Simulated scan of single mutants.
Amino acid sequence: MEPEGLVVAGVFFDGRSAQRHDVTLSLDGAQLYLRGAGCERRDAVSVLRISAPLGRTPRLIRYADGAVCEVRDAAGFDALLESQGQGRWLHRAESSARIVVASLLLVAALIAAGLYWGVPLAANGVAAEMPASLVRQFSRQTLDVLDHQWLQPSTLPSSRQDALRVAAQRLRSAEGSPLAFKLVFRASKTMGPNAFALPDGTIVLLDELVALADNDDELMAVVAHELGHVRHRHGLRLMAQGAAVGLLATWWFGDVSTLLATAPTVLAQAHYSREFETEADDDAVRTLRASGIAPECLATLLRKLAVTQKGRESQGFGGLLDSHPALLARARRVDGEVSAGR
């Protein structure tokens, strides 16, 4: 029995054939009642996809099974929906610029919050659980990328390299235990005096930084800083964050085939954040003090690096030379930590 009330005409296609059916539409509570020659159905309005009103264009009702109904009397159909409140909120939302703008801002805020808090939190968990074999693989591939794009073989004599490796054996954790890492040497015409750590504990010292330092203690301060990045898994966390953002993008746009292949490059080009640099500096102060090396050496070398950095553009690499925060500000903060005995 057809419900009483407003009735509008439409053309129905069942989605299985090209045959059209002239039908009438009416509302029975929260259900849309469709009736015509050879077809009759009731569907909850909430599960239907109804096109938004656009001038005098026909309204389209899309059903879950692929059927479609075209309603040319758009005004009559609006009145039908409004008669029992079925289209009121949606119509107002679509017609209100304030609601549209507020909705867009809400979505943008949720995305920003996810990127700012959610992604780093998830990345921290991923980095903590990453298998050692995968860490070694990423580190090896990252060094290959760097060797290909930015680095050249070291020109330091083997005896000098060996002497620095022996000096590095003095480094101890705050608890006094030896620190496990591998010290390697490279040169770079583009990076200048710099050093960086790979997630597996490989510390790369550049010849230009060795030449800048006045003594080995200053170089050990650099190594201690880079070990702070390793200890807190900063490189892995950055890589996991980049992969998470990339995954969201590829989920939206498609093509995830190259995501893991680009991870070493992302790691190689990543900047450390202010938080990461501060954490590594604090870790270095504790390591130097436990190793019997004056922590002031770190601040001294940071000031020397600040002088060499003037006029140089960042190379996009997250090593000791990273300018976030500024090197002089970091040096002053290290002095404060040393004076406070922390």
Score class of each variant (00 low, 15 high):
337 E>S: 14
121 L>I: 04
27 L>G: 12
239 M>V: 10
257 S>A: 15
17 S>F: 05
300 T>V: 08
235 G>W: 04
236 L>H: 02
268 A>M: 08
180 A>Q: 14
247 L>P: 07
338 V>Y: 05
146 L>M: 15
134 L>H: 03
158 S>W: 07
93 A>N: 11
34 L>G: 09
167 A>P: 01
189 K>Y: 01
111 I>K: 05
81 L>T: 12
53 P>K: 12
226 E>H: 03
225 H>A: 05
62 R>N: 11
63 Y>C: 11
158 S>L: 14
23 V>I: 11
70 E>M: 11
336 G>F: 10
145 V>T: 01
164 L>M: 12
342 R>I: 03
284 A>D: 00
148 H>T: 09
316 G>W: 07
175 E>G: 09
78 D>Y: 08
142 T>F: 01
333 R>A: 11
147 D>I: 06
260 L>A: 15
189 K>D: 08
152 Q>R: 14
209 L>T: 08
128 A>C: 00
62 R>E: 13
192 G>F: 05
310 K>H: 08
134 L>K: 03
281 D>S: 03
27 L>T: 06
307 V>M: 10
213 A>E: 03
265 T>R: 11
73 D>W: 03
12 F>Y: 15
142 T>N: 07
35 R>P: 06
223 V>F: 05
65 D>H: 02
50 I>E: 02
31 Q>G: 10
185 F>Y: 05
203 I>C: 13
196 F>G: 07
67 A>M: 12
168 A>K: 01
71 V>G: 15
258 T>W: 13
178 P>I: 03
34 L>Q: 13
108 A>R: 02
312 R>Q: 03
163 A>W: 09
224 A>L: 02
132 A>R: 06
324 H>K: 03
335 D>R: 07
158 S>A: 15
196 F>I: 02
80 L>H: 04
77 F>S: 07
237 R>T: 02
186 R>Y: 00
85 G>K: 14
142 T>M: 11
98 R>G: 13
28 D>V: 11
46 S>F: 12
224 A>Q: 06
235 G>L: 04
166 V>W: 01
119 V>G: 02
286 R>V: 02
16 R>Y: 09
134 L>S: 07
261 A>N: 12
197 A>D: 00
